[in-house]
């Protein structure tokens, strides 16, 4: 039965064409992503458990407060207790790698959008597409191009999680007050100085909101990515589903939630507070505030 608009055929023809002619390109991309996510995961796996505890709790203490640091310690202990440490580090590596790639592509795209209305008009529908197309749809070509494993998982995650970083970078720069931009220009900034000394710092809350969203979306892809062999906590959940093992599925889910809470609070703290604060001054205010709180509590 011949359809009038065989879009599906065009797409699969296109994918076939790319497979035949652009395999080198995909190998290159795969190698790049492999490098980032492989190294990150290896690094995380090689890091002693106590060091992960120390770094995450330390960050929590610095950026958020002692209560949160305490939560981090307990939450990580729960993961350790569920015997999901290795999976959690795999997932963390995947999420961080996907986020790095998404930000590496997304943030500059956002800047380009903010600087040019034409770029913005072209990029916006692409972003809509990336965000609304069901993830399973691009899992198939991802597997075709990159095979099973961590790489296609990362790529699918990148596609799904990148849009907010682009959008919020664009929005943040466009919303920098006109007079601040004028001040920058009036004092003799060239293009790069204007971007780095005025626009990016003033857009920082918005940018950090974008980074936060990207990380959260990346985490939400964990289970789906594990369907094409990305491993990690997603695999635990998937196994739970396949075996109808409610307990196992819950443990995997809990691990994801814990990671989400830690990453969310940490990245949010970078958005809401002045990033110009030196760690030292933060540390000082932390001690004064910490003692206040504890005397109150």
């Amino acid at each position: 039965m011949a359809r009038e608009l065989p879009i599906g055929e065009y797409v699969s023809d296109g994918v076939d064409f790319l497979l035949d002619h652009a395999q080198g390109l995909f190998d290159g991309i795969a190698a790049g992503i492999e490098f980032v996510s492989g190294n990150l995961t290896d690094l995380l796996q090689a890091t002693p458990i106590w060091a992960v505890f120390a770094v995450l709790a330390g960050l929590g203490l610095w950026r958020v407060g002692w209560r949160f640091a305490l939560f981090v310690l307990v939450a990580l202990y729960v993961i350790l207790g569920m015997d999901l440490w290795e999976q959690t580090m795999d997932t963390l590596g995947l999420v961080l790698a996907a986020t790095l790639v998404a930000l590496g592509i997304g943030l500059p795209s956002g800047v380009a959008m903010a600087k040019s209305d034409i770029v913005a008009a072209v990029v916006r529908p692409v972003l809509d597409f990336m965000q609304t197309l069901p993830a399973f749809v691009y899992l198939i070509p991802a597997v075709l191009f990159f095979g099973l494993g961590e790489v296609p998982g990362t790529i699918a995650t990148v596609i799904f999680s990148m849009p907010p970083a682009v959008r919020l970078m664009n929005l943040g720069i466009r919303h920098v007050p006109v007079e601040n931009v004028e001040a920058g220009r009036a004092f003799g900034c060239n293009g790069a100085q204007l971007l780095f000394k005025v626009e990016l710092p003033l857009a920082m809350p918005s940018i950090m909101a974008g980074v936060n969203q990207t990380i959260m979306l990346a985490l939400s892809m964990v289970v789906i990515a594990s369907m094409i062999g990305a491993g990690g906590l997603g695999n635990t959940v998937l196994t739970g589903i396949q075996r109808l093992d409610v307990g196992l599925g819950f443990e995997g889910g809990l691990g994801v939630v814990i990671l989400a809470i830690i990453l969310d609070r940490l990245t949010q703290s970078f958005g809401s507070r002045s990033t110009a604060d030196s760690p030292l001054s933060r540390l000082k205010s932390l001690f004064s505030r910490g003692s206040e709180e504890s005397s109150k509590g």
């Binding site: 007050p177 007079e179 003033l202």
Partner: peptide
């Protein structure tokens, strides 16, 4: 500038 246009960071 009228709105001061200082850099908050």
């Amino acid at each position: 500038f009228q709105s001061f246009a200082l850099m908050p960071h």
